[in-house]
Amino acid sequence: MTVIVDYGVGNLFSLKSSLDYLGEDGIVSGDENIIRSADRIILPGVGAFADAKKKLSSNSLDKVVVEEAKKCKPLMGICLGMQLLFEKSYEFGATEGLSLIAGEVKPIAPVIPKGYKVPHIGWNSLHFTGKGRNSEVFKYIAEGEFVYFVHSFAAMGCEDSVTAFAEYGADLTAAVQRGNVFGMQFHPEKSGETGLRILKAFCEL
């Protein structure tokens, strides 16, 4: 069973529909016991970092997610859920993250050339790092496949963990992995067949 952590942010409907489509037993829940009993955890999220962190912490779900991840349970953070995996974000002031992966979340505007629009919205291709080519979650997809991005901030200073980047005038962190903890800056649940294959691979872990 895969739990989609419900902490009051994000479009959980699409993720649940994706798991249903894949025939995977998915549950949307903010209940500690269900999260602890799940085989794997998806941490979704859209919106602002500080607000999301506050909501996740308000019922101690941040501790639950971190503890379960440290027991080697597969965890996938998606979009803002991925950003929460890092040490710190600078969106609307500095906010501490879950510190499961080393690195910080910073605005993309200063690192991309002038003329590139912010947010980075649309379908962009995934380019794997050496580490990414062997990542379990990418076993059903090929170099250069397209996925859907919507973001103005990205993880930086996390070179050791990057499994894929997207070219947008600069190489933006698109996916990370540290052991059993995975992060996707894009939305696999909105990335057509390619995204479904990433979720399928994750559900097989």
Partner: peptide
């Protein structure tokens, strides 16, 4: 809309 959203995996 719910029925559509259940079946499509693009924005």
């Amino acid at each position: 809309l719910r029925k559509v959203a259940e079946q499509i995996f693009i924005p």
